[in-house]
Design a protein around this nucleic acid. Structure first.
Lengths: 247, 247
DNA sequence: TTTGAAAGTGTTAAAATGACACGAAGTTAA
DNA sequence: TTAACTTCGTGTCATTTTAACACTTTCAAA
């Protein structure tokens, strides 16, 4: 007898995605505006959806990203599962719930992911982008629908941990970037000021960036040298177990 | 209308627990022997069960620990969700599945936890202990039922990460312990040798242990001083954001 | 040509790390 | 009682890492 895991929505399990971007000044997240659907509670929410029974959780998360904004092949990491029985039990949520799932009375646990995208590739003006979605600075978010604020916090914590160990921050930057931009990126993720000279010294000593023969253009001050991520160097380092990216 | 999240098993979500212990020599895990129920595949599995619709995931994990061995008030941390559609689809598993759940054809995702227990409190000889469960050294486990080996690996990784940041290892030791035991604990979790003198120096400098006025007894060699975990000191450190427990 | 704004650069003191070996204190067996 | 065995417990030094700190340069815009 064949197991009947078919292409149907599973009413009990969803995925939610914390999509981080970096506008070259501060860390941002992609949020859905549920304004049209609900009068109650916070309008902003994380993008997410129920999973299908024949896809893995990672696939479900990738699907959500793809459906929302055509985002593919992106850095994706699981945050964890969130399953308070009351996480979406408020009456206020019911109307919204009905817009995305068949059984609004079901108990739903969600598996949260965070992803890192080059924001320039997915600006709200891009055609692929859902009209109801937009970037918001992480530091200016104080509430979200359901338990999504809690999920956002957990995602930030995970990201902060991870970036001390792996140089995943480059997923948030364009191919060419300045050391100041990298510096600000680390400051906004670690949420603390870092000494400019010490930061630059360590980045360059590790050798994780390569200087290009090209300068920033169009800035009203001394233009910075541009750099790119040195992937080969990173491969070599991680092969040797190097894991100190704590600036 | 009240949401009907009732006290029923949810057929789509389970929790599995990686229960770590330390026998004062090496790291161990508590495993279930499914020998009686299945002829196919590995006999050993992690303890786990479906969740009830009216309990949180944390509560479900605690319930599993309690039902299995009367384990309460224990260090518990989520590892993550595992949801490959085929993770328990093998025919070989079906008979076993029927012993723990109503719908063997359902697609089940599982939320994994790891917990740290003082092994002496939960020896296989304790009456509360399930007859089919037992401790196995982590280093000697190479396969488990379902995707449980993968879960075990993930739990080990999480534990290794975490112990570099928080001194959670004391949850695995008796109240009174020797520095050698602590040393071996860190070596088995980090899976690498640590220099004895450097390890002791750092532990004592941090001030995370307090020397007792009592020595080890009944050992056929020079007895060691006993120590206890200095909880107050740790509170003070973590209040100041100290998080370097990387030996 | 002056002003404004960010880029880019080096030193030093303090702390942390990593490598390394031997005498002391107990038990057990001869 | 003595010898043998096992683990306990300890300090130094060279190297590396960290943290703190300020001024000149370069470009665009006014």
């Amino acid at each position: 007898m064949q197991k009947k895991v078919t292409h149907e929505l599973n009413p009990n399990v969803s995925v939610d995605c914390v999509i981080f971007g970096f506008d070259l000044e501060k860390l941002t997240v992609l949020l859905i505006d549920r304004g049209q659907q609900t009068q109650h509670g916070p309008r902003l929410a994380l993008p997410g959806n129920l999973i299908y029974n024949d896809e893995t959780l990672d696939q479900a998360a990738n699907r959500v990203l793809d459906e929302l904004a055509g985002i593919n092949d992106i850095y994706l990491e699981q945050v964890g599962a969130f399953g308070d029985p009351n996480r979406i039990c408020k009456d206020a949520d019911r109307e919204w719930l009905q817009t995305i799932r068949a059984e609004p009375e079901a108990r739903v646990i969600t598996v949260a992911y965070y992803s890192l995208v080059k924001m320039s590739d997915y600006s709200p003006h891009a055609s692929s982008f859902a009209k109801t979605a937009g970037w918001a600075p992480v530091s200016e978010i104080f509430e979200l629908a359901f338990d999504h604020f809690e999920i956002l916090q957990a995602a930030k914590d995970k990201l902060r941990q991870k970036i001390k160990i792996q140089p995943i921050g480059f997923n948030l930057l364009p191919e060419k970037f300045t050391l100041s931009q990298l510096h600000k990126l680390y400051e906004s993720i670690l949420d603390k000021p870092l000494d400019k000279r010490n930061f630059r010294r360590k980045v360059q000593k590790i050798g994780i960036v390569t200087a290009l023969k090209e300068k920033q253009r169009g800035v009203p001050h001394k233009p910075s040298l541009l750099y790119k991520f040195n992937e080969e160097k990173y491969e070599a380092l991680s092969k040797n177990g190097y894991d100190n990216f704590d600036f």
